[in-house]
Design a binder for these strands. Sequence first.
DNA 1: TATTGTTATACTCTATAACTATA
DNA 2: TATAGTTATAGAGTATAACAATA
Lengths: 158, 158
Amino acid sequence: MPAIRPLAHDRGALSGSVDSAAEQMVRLWARAEDVAQGQVSPSQLRALQAVGAHGLLNLNGLAAQLGAIPSSASRLCDRLVAAGLLDRRVSDHNRREVVLTLRPDGKRLLAEIERHRHATLTDVLGAMTQGGRTALLRGLEEFSRVAREIDKSSQHSA
Amino acid sequence: MPAIRPLAHDRGALSGSVDSAAEQMVRLWARAEDVAQGQVSPSQLRALQAVGAHGLLNLNGLAAQLGAIPSSASRLCDRLVAAGLLDRRVSDHNRREVVLTLRPDGKRLLAEIERHRHATLTDVLGAMTQGGRTALLRGLEEFSRVAREIDKSSQHSA
DNA sequence: TATTGTTATACTCTATAACTATA
DNA sequence: TATAGTTATAGAGTATAACAATA
């Protein structure tokens, strides 16, 4: 705790501005997933995204990614398999384990969301000034780098 | 559709960079709500946030804010009232309507999340360079302004 | 008759606990 | 015995449909 923090007040005000401005970005980000509405539930989508991000997962791994327990993940997979979006088969190396992979329709769904998110973002960026775009990119890149570092060090202390 | 878009490729690449950088910000934003885990479910939290943002709401209004139907909102309110976070009373002006307001514990919960979000954001901003902070603020403010405009005009066409 | 909510009913999501199969 | 998953069972979230109360 430094004895003198002359910028503390300004920094608090700045984070308030960033906070409210970031809200719009968060909203836009989340709305891309609306294209999956009617096809899969939010939970099912998170499961597909977890499998998509990790390539191969077993059931405990999926549960860990979702912050859920294996039985919940198992039920989720039941429905995703029934919907033809996910493949669940016994591992070649350990017959206790299952291996979860995306089926083509599952991959298509994730790609569709990503495409939609990218298109919306491109629209907004295209309507911004060149200086605004440059500033946003610079600011976000430093932000995400610093946030990752802080995240890492706080996990060590937890 | 303009005939010539020389910047189309660059713009697409830029939105990809912004996309991945923004992901970290979205994650940080969402994590603030983890402080409510164990107290209320995500759905209940969204309901509290909707009431908090609008001050007064009737049940149809809440359902509209949640993108749900009145019966679902009614059940949500049952549990929030039982938990002492929400107040549901008959309107003075129209005895068909109910008026939903936050109880002190409900307000405290939302304030706690906001405080946590603000603190995390302040930590990250404090670890950034002055130039990075300025760029981020400028970029986000223009982004959110433009995104709101596009949102508004797309609602008109929908 | 139209509007505002609530209540049955049913399906999904989730957790706990008990179970099977494999190592 | 420990590990990986699955299957009862139960509570919460949600929608449809039927209902009561008010305007």
